[in-house]
Structure formats: C-alpha cells, structure tokens
Design a protein around this nucleic acid. Sequence first.
RNA 1: AGGGCCAUAGCCAAGCGGUAAGGCAAAGGACUUUGACUCCUUCAUCUCUGGUUCAAAUCCAGAUGGCCCUG
Length: 371
Amino acid sequence: MKKVILGLSGGVDSAVACYLLQQAGYAVEGVFMRNWDSTLNNDVLGNPNDPNEVCPQEVDYLDALAVANKLGIPLHRIDFVEEYWERVFSIFLEEYRHNRTPNPDILCNKEIKFNSFLEQADMMGCDYIAMGHYARSVHQPSVALLRGLDGNKDQSYFLCQLTKAQVAKSLFPIGHLTKSEVRSIATAIDLPVATKKDSTGVCFIGERRFKAFLENYLPHQPGEMIDTMGRMIGKHDGLMYYTIGQRHGLSIGGPGDPWFVIGKIPSKNQLLVGQGFHHPLLYSDRCLVMGLNWLIDDPQSITTAQAKFRYRQPDVDVVLHHHEDGSVDVSYPTTVRAVTPGQAAVFYHGEVLLGGGTIECVYMNNELRPY
RNA sequence: AGGGCCAUAGCCAAGCGGUAAGGCAAAGGACUUUGACUCCUUCAUCUCUGGUUCAAAUCCAGAUGGCCCUG
C-alpha cells in the first residue's frame, strides 16, 4: 500500500482530497502546517481578528482534526513559521520595497508546501505528498502539470515554480473535479467542513486589510500623486502600497472617470495616476520575464503559448523569444491591461502548464512602461 | 465704491413651484488561496433668515460667502 502525506488545511478541498485518496487505496496521513504567527510576526495593523478570540488558524486546525477523525487518519502538526518568514515573507517584503507587486503564494508553494513539507514527508517515509489544489499532475509516461479541470478554480498558476521532481512526487486528488462536485462529495460523506466558506487572502496569513498589513513592515513614505501632465492630483503614503491598475484607496474625488494607478516614479517618489479604466498607459504588448521555471524538456523550442499574467486572467496568445541568460521576451500583440512587475507570467499549451517566471519590465511599442 | 454672476452631500453636478438624477470618493458586501480589477449595496432636504403659495432647492426680500467687470 502506497503511503501519502496530505496537507490538511481544515478546508473542504483537502478534506475531500483525503477521502478520494483513501478510495483510491492509499494509506493517508495528514499534516497541518502552521506557517504564520501573528504575535511573533508583529501582524497587528489590518488584522481583523479579535486577539481575545480563538484565532482562525486554531479553528482551521480543529477543523482539520475533525476531518482526520471523521476519515480515520492520523494528523500531524508541523511548524514552518521560521521557514515561511525567511524564504517567503522576507522576499515578499523585499519585492514591495522595490515597488513591485509580488505573489507570495507562488513562493509559498515553491519553498514551503512542495519543499520543506516534502522533505518532512520524505522523512516520514511517504511515496507521495498530496494537496487540495485545483490542478492535475501526470506521472506517466512523463511528468507534467495540468490545469485544474474547473476553469473557474484552476490554481495551476500558483504552481508554476514547481520542478518536475516536485510534481513527480505530488498528487492532486481534486484536480479533475469542479468546486461544486467537491462540495457535494463533502456533503455526501458528511464532512464537518462541507459548507465551510472558501478561504482567501495570502495563504497561511489570511484576509487582511492589505495596506494596513504592509504598514506593519514597511513604513510610510508620503509623496505626490501626479497625472501625465505633471499636475499634482493628491498625496500618497508610499509607492509600495499601490499596484498598477489599482483604483481604490486613492481618494481622488471630483469630475470625470475614476482614477487608476498607471505608474510609479521612484526617483521623485511620485505615483502616476490617470483617469479611465482603459487609460493607454495601462496597456502593454511585451514584457521581460526572468526567473523561469520549466516543466518541459526543451523550453527553447517553445515559441508560442497561451499565458496568464495574473491569477484568473483569461488566456492571452503570446510569442516567446528566449535570451541566452534564460530570460524570455514575451509579446502579446493583442495588448494586455496592467501587466505588473513582480507578478508571474505562466505559460500553457492547452491544458499543460509549460512553465513560468516573474515579470521584470513591461513595454508598449518598445517603450518601457514606468511600472 | 458701484454693476453682474453664483451658492445642492467630502468632490464634480442635474434640477426652472409638486415633494432632491447621475458621476467621483468613501464605507460595507460579493467574487478571489497574491495584489488588483469587476459587480452589488449604502451615503444630502438643497448657505442662513424671513416672506409668497395648498405646495419652494426651485418665486420674492435681506444676510453671509465666493467669482467676474467697472472705477
């Protein structure tokens, strides 16, 4: 009997994954990861949780425990608070300091869930690890990672930094199901978390009022908001608190269309703002992607693909031009709104995830965008 | 000092005697394992004081505030 170590989060998805693994004949053990300590990590501002109540993380643990009991598997608890801080959160903050918009959950998957966790699981003598992601792994005849079948929930975007070795060790038991199918299985077998609301927010940290949350770690650096004519439109609290294409939180009232963040000028600590969802400066037709990770054999041979520049964004047809240093120029003649440095560009051929990297800089008609 | 114009929510702004449109911002919610976007909901008795009228943001008088022109 093959042994699987499953990440049990306390949510429905991993719970149903557990059940499906059992049905498939695996010996399953659960691991609850604890990667964030609000007190230790000074997570105070923007934290909606009443410090006097049982914290949501404990609730999740108890839910995971209830699921483990219901399904009759052992549940272990592992603490990666330190690893998470050093290998995910500190990089996350560093990116913000550079006025970029990082994607912590991609790093978390790469460094924690499919690395630290995998190491632990190996020590526990497992054949595979499993997670409740909406994505599919293929091991034979060759290793591949596919999109989740539920187009609305597909989470393969977050897995773009996994190596083939990691995918080869991973099972995604719910990747071929839709969310509603997962819910009905959960209901059918009477799981205690069958109707629990989906969790969102940075994984392991949870919902936060984001700007306030960042203020715990990145102090204010007030400056001006200006429009493309150089007119002062308002004040900002720090370039790092804003992302390209953002509308809310600018507090710019008055006539005309809503205002959006359309650029950053770090040398003057100025935030560039413009009116209208379709402001021309928000659009680009090319970007440079670095830090690429490929899940296929001959990446150089890939010259066209579909891509996502943000989670849940519709696919965009792109043309890839590979540089010698491994970076890739990605062109998208159809033009895309708010492609943002720090976010991931993830490439697909149909269902297959080819690989992905981090957006470094963005161009329109060969002109660098001030992002 | 004369003359003219204007005064509606945090900001723009409809309304022209019949019981306050809309947009921006903000707040709350939905969506979402990043960050955004998007969607939904909420948000004024009309500068003040008198008067005319069954009825006034809408008419009249005065006050206050702001803008413009003339000396």
